[in-house]
Structures are given as structure tokens and as C-alpha cells.
Amino acid sequence: MTHLGWLTVACYAASFACYARFLYAPNPWLGRLATALLAGEIVAEYFVLLERSHGMHAVPYDDLYGSMSLFAWLLGVTYLGLETFHRQRSVGAFVTLLLAVWMTLLETLVPRTAPPLPPARGPLFAFHVTLNTWAYAAFALSFVLSVVYLLQDRILRLRHPGAAFWRFPALDVLERMARSSVYIGLAALTAGATMGLIWAHRLMGSYTLSDPKVMVTFAILVVYAAYLLISRSARWRGARAAALCAANFGFVLFSYTLVNLYLTKFHRFL
């Protein structure tokens, strides 16, 4: 792991420590410090990504390392946006824990070698991949929020709330944040997929709909749209909808891992 890698992990870990402490002792300054640490890390990571993209003259998503870094960065950005919009910091501990673990795995397991220079594919392609990665990050966030919802629901049903329970966000807040996150993900994925199809059509004269990545992307759009539709129905509202949202993330993981690494022809990492 490089010094910069350690610094990234340390920043996320420090932010996590503050958010976790904030759950027990909601000192406003501690909360602000947690947010500031996360924001600072996001700014620093932005410059790391920028530096990496300078060398490649492209958004750094062609290799697994770059793609995972971009994913983590977009996840952090999306979370910060939701935290500000919903004025709710108590989910921060879960998100920053995920980010810290993600970045640790990234820095220790994924080779950090500079990828070969990708061919110049234009801004449309860059937007396509960046928006899709952003969508995955937003769906990951909705997954975390849904899991916390299910945990909170379980504690409420067992009627034995523990110490941290009293600092957890309300079910209603978690549900609204998860829905906001899914809205962002769906919008980004729709725009990103559309741009990808247009780009492919320009390049090859066809829409390459048979590529597994494209098919899985459509499946993701369908399952998350279904979540938004039925999560407000009388039968699904609440824990069932949260479970569905969490389960939907399985499609995203499948698309991001197995499909990207083994199944797709056009969407492989370099």
C-alpha cells in the first residue's frame, strides 16, 4: 500500500470513528468534524483521481483500481449530498465503515499499476461510464440504508433496544434516504446507459443489446424501478420494501463483478 493509500484509508477510518462516536454522544461539533473529515477526504481523493486521469487523458475507470476508486469517491459524494439534504448524520458511521473497508481492500488486494493508455473514446463514453459508476455508488448507498432500516425494524420488533439504538435514525428517515438514493441511481443509470447505447451505435452502427452487461443493466433498471413503484404500496411499504431494495443490490454486485470480469465482451477492465 502506498503512503497516499494509507492516508485515504486513515481519513475514512477517522471519519468513521467520529461518526460512530457521534451515534453515542451527539455533540454537534463531533458531527461536523466527521462530515469535514469525509469532505476533506473526498476533495483529496478527487485530486488523486485527477492526477491519475492526467496521465491517461481519460476518466480513470479502465482498470479495476481506477474504477473502484471512482466508485468509492462517488459513493462518498452521494452520501454527503444526502446527508446535507436530509440533515441526518447518524447513517454516516455505516457509510464510512463501508468506504474504509472498501478502500482497504482496494489498496491491499488490487494492483495499483498504471493501466495502458486507453484509446480516445470521447466525452460521451466518459459520461457513460462515470454516470453508471455513480449509479452503482447510489445503489450501494441505498443498500446500506436498507440494511440499517431492517436492523432498526428488527430491534423495534424485538422490543429490546440497546445503547446505540437511541441514536439510530428513524425508519421514516431511512426509507426516504434510501428512496432518494435510488432515484439518483436510476437517473444516473438511465442517462449513462442511454449515452453508452448512443456511443456504441455511433461506433458500430448497432446497439449491442445482446451484451450481458447491457442486459444486466436493464435488469437493474427494472428491479429498482419496481422497488420505487411498490415500496409505497400497502402490502410492501416498510421492511419488505427495504428487503427488496437490499436484495436488488445483488444485481449491481453481479454486474460490477462477475459480468465485468468474465461475462461481458465490451465492458471488461483493462
Binding site: 432498526q152 423495534l156 433496544p161 439504538f165 437511541w166 439510530f168 435514525p169 428513524a170 425508519l171 421514516d172 428517515v173
Partner: peptide, 18 residues
């Protein structure tokens, strides 16, 4: 944490509805 039954009920409701 609430230490009266009345407030505990209200606080728990807040954990459902915000």
C-alpha cells in the same frame, strides 16, 4: 435515554416516524 414510561413510548414513536 428516556427513563419514564410516557417518554419512552414517545421516543420509540420518534424512531418510527422521525
Amino acid at each position: 435515554r428516556p427513563v419514564s414510561v410516557a417518554l419512552a413510548g414517545v421516543k420509540l414513536a420518534e424512531h418510527v416516524f422521525g
